[in-house]
């Protein structure tokens, strides 16, 4: 996994060189960027044993104000969404059944409590025929704002890691990463994405996670280790722009001895891998002069975003060296 981390480091490294050698100066500036054409964004997942959940939103001006209400307003609540021809149910956050609250909350990134105050509608497949199953193809079609969007994904076969464990980082007595051993099948283009969720202990200094979070470098493909058994390591996933003490400073990205967490390991399609890889690459580059600006590769015809199938397994780990 370090290999995948290093490819980002490669670019960042040169930036470090500059910072080291010269006293560069940074300041806030005003930029007048005209808003581009509004496009529809799909954020849809279907996971083994779960119904399909689709959120539809519109692109917004880059510097437009972004309050919770602004985000809520960018979601589309009058669309017609179908998976394999079956119409999904529109369920809005003010009337969301408890079992879907966590899923929708995870997709939007707004906590379950905050969801109650906003009206955001998700499209959920309540039909039992749509519960995610391994090795099944799912076609998505959307009619919204006078536009037609479509996408296809597949829930691949579940590939579980052989073993999962916590390991201290370097000489640190306290913090570490999660590692797993993976035996990759001897077929090319097996792609993976992982998430972590800390479930205990829960105290002010060390709160549990509401949701599953994917760390930077969460996705990878068997291009370089097809059919081999490899050891891969990951940092801890955390919410975007988190202000929790554990997500900032020295603790950021680490598990601490005593943590209990769930390691969610999923197989995804190559198209989903390309989306999340370019998504993470963009997050990592963040306007760096050493990276060429590039759009995230979408698998949605007629719009932006992702329609991803996940085949997931879960392991609960206690951080003991």
């Amino acid at each position: 996994m370090e290999f995948l981390v290093l490819k980002y480091v490669f670019r960042i490294l040169i930036l470090v060189a500059f910072t080291l050698l010269f006293a560069s100066c940074e300041r806030e500036i005003e930029i007048d960027v005209p808003t581009g054409e509004t496009q529809i964004v799909v954020e849809g997942t279907i996971e083994t044993g779960q119904p399909p959940v689709v959120l539809l939103s519109k692109t917004r001006g880059f510097f437009e104000p972004t309050s919770a209400q602004d985000i809520a307003n960018s979601y589309i609540d009058n669309a017609e969404v179908r998976v394999n021809g079956i119409l999904l149910n529109r369920i809005c956050s003010d009337s969301l059944p408890p079992e879907f609250q966590a899923i929708v909350s995870g997709l939007i990134g707004i906590s379950i409590e905050d969801l109650d105050d906003l009206r955001i509608c998700a499209y959920i497949g309540l039909d039992p025929a749509l519960i995610g199953t391994e090795n099944t193809i799912y076609d998505l079609s959307v009619t919204a704002e006078g536009k037609e969007l479509s996408a296809t994904t597949k829930i691949p076969a579940i590939i579980e890691p052989d073993s999962v464990w916590f390991r201290l980082w370097a000489d640190s007595p306290q913090y570490g990463y999660v590692f797993c051993n993976l035996s990759d099948p001897d077929t090319l283009n097996n792609a993976y994405r992982i998430f972590t969720k800390r479930i205990g202990p829960n105290d002010n200094n060390n709160p549990i996670d509401d949701l599953y979070y994917a760390p930077l470098g969460s996705t990878f493909i068997d291009e370089f280790f097809n059919g081999e058994t490899i050891e891969v390591g990951f940092t801890r996933g955390q919410p975007a722009n988190s202000i929790r003490p554990t997500d900032q400073g020295d603790e950021s990205g680490y598990f601490e001895i005593g943590d209990t967490f769930i390691f969610k390991f999923c197989s995804i399609t190559k198209a989903s891998y390309e989306f999340y890889l370019t998504f993470e690459s963009q997050q990592g580059a963040n306007g760096s002069p050493f990276a060429s600006p590039a759009n995230v590769i979408s698998n949605i015809n007629g719009g932006l975003g992702i329609w991803a199938g996940y085949a997931c397994s879960r392991d609960t780990i206690i951080a003991i060296p």
Binding site: G36, Q39, K58, T59, R60, G61, F62, G106, P293, G305
Partner: peptide
């Protein structure tokens, strides 16, 4: 420069 933006996983 980006002319618009959207949210994925917040």
């Amino acid at each position: 420069l980006p002319q618009s933006g959207y949210f994925i996983e917040n």
